[in-house]
């Protein structure tokens, strides 16, 4: 009936005198409808094949949803923030504490999680102007750890040693498997929404201005860019987006612990999702997020306890083997695309 034919460069599908052709050529793969459809089909397929995959997919989506704003932040501030998980912690703890204390539903805690994260980011943002290079790296790296210490010191509020429990779950439809499926779709919506917003920003004039700041701050200042404004806005804006991911984590697991999100391991995962995907190409962040989450899942299933050592080693080897990232293999060098690669500054 349906006739598939693979010619040199195209797949031809024939059905009752109708003919469809699909040219195998990477540049035709840049089709948002295609990829979003695949994303939407995946959880439904996994639901019947292996429900465990849905869980991996949710974490992949969230890694991507943190890595993308992180890439935007890196671009807009011209500095690499080594502590994006700080904002995950702020958003998550806000949602968790509010939900436990007042019994608020996820929808009620979401605006507060975003507002508190934005406010924290505003307080923290002068660092973007004052510190640069290694000092910025160190200070931003320290902040999640300081926050972690705070959760342990004020353990009666934050429950730093055991973690917070009893947060209202994101969804309660009665059936756990259907719950998972719907949550997977919510995570996809968040991820695709972030992707769409950030892509719009980056392709607009503001993306170009950010790229200029990323390349040479002083020169950008000299040609009329109000660099402090742009840096602070992009910092706070991306931080708010990262906070949403924290909110999701808190309600998804119904528990939130600094041990999981404010430590180096989680930071490493975010960072590698960003770098392995393709050096801050935002589409690369999605690829990277999926790669990191699925690699971790495979390693946990096959290697058991030793995976904690093997996982970072594999990722670090990949960083050296693929300096341009997974996305870079396909992208090669395209001069017309001005979205820059990042440099870790002196």
């Amino acid at each position: 009936m349906v006739d598939f034919e693979l010619k040199r460069d195209r797949i031809t599908i024939r059905l009752k005198g109708k003919k469809w052709e699909w040219i195998i050529e990477p540049r035709y793969w840049r089709n948002s409808i295609l990829w979003v459809t695949l994303l939407l089909i995946f959880p439904a397929a996994a639901y019947f094949i292996s429900p465990g995959l849905i869980n991996t997919m949710i974490s992949a989506n969230l890694l991507a949803a943190i890595a993308m704003p992180m890439a935007l932040m890196t671009l807009g501030t011209g500095r690499v923030n080594f502590g994006p998980n700080f904002f995950v912690g702020v958003g998550g703890y806000t949602a968790a504490l509010l939900s436990i204390a007042y019994g608020w539903s996820p929808l009620a805690t979401l605006p507060f999680a975003i507002i508190v994260t934005l406010f924290t980011a505003i307080l923290y943002s002068p660092l973007v102007i004052v510190a640069r290079g290694l000092y910025y790296v160190l200070l931003s790296l320290l902040l999640p750890f300081v926050f972690f210490e705070v959760t342990i010191i004020y353990t009666d509020i934050f429950k730093g040693d055991t973690g917070l429990f009893g947060i209202k779950p994101l969804l309660d439809l009665g059936n756990a498997r259907i719950n998972f499926l719907v949550i997977a779709y919510i995570s996809i919506v968040i991820m695709v929404l972030f992707l769409w917003i950030i892509n719009k920003v980056v392709k607009s004039r503001y993306g170009l201005i950010m790229a200029a700041i990323n390349d040479d701050e002083e020169v950008a200042h000299g040609i009329g860019v109000n660099i402090n404004k742009v840096k602070i806005i992009s910092f706070v804006f991306s931080a708010g987006m990262i906070g949403v991911a924290g909110w999701f984590y808190a309600h998804y697991f119904s528990s939130f612990a600094g041990q999981t999100y404010l430590t180096f391991t989680f930071m490493l995962k975010i960072f590698l999702a960003m770098m392995i995907g393709g050096r801050t190409t935002i589409f690369g962040c999605v690829v990277g997020g999926y790669f990191v989450a699925f690699l971790e899942m495979i390693l946990i299933r096959t290697m058991g306890p030793i995976q904690a050592v093997v996982f970072p080693v594999i990722l670090i080897i990949l960083l050296f083997a693929l300096p341009e990232g997974l996305f870079g293999i396909y992208r090669k060098r395209r001069y017309r695309e001005y979205f820059p690669t990042i440099h870790v500054r002196r």
């Binding site: 004039r205 170009l208 201005i209 790229a211 200029a212 990323n214 390349d215 040479d216 002083e218 020169v219 950008a220 000299g222 040609i223 009329g224 860019v225 001069y335 017309r336 001005y338 820059p340 690669t341």
Partner: peptide
């Protein structure tokens, strides 16, 4: 406006985009 003694372009931007930035922001 000024030029620099040692050229300081935006290395990762194309020539057109570099100039477009200053047309936008000047």
């Amino acid at each position: 406006a000024r030029t620099y003694q040692i050229p300081r372009p935006f290395p990762e931007l194309t020539a057109l985009m570099g100039v477009a930035t200053s047309a936008l922001c000047g």
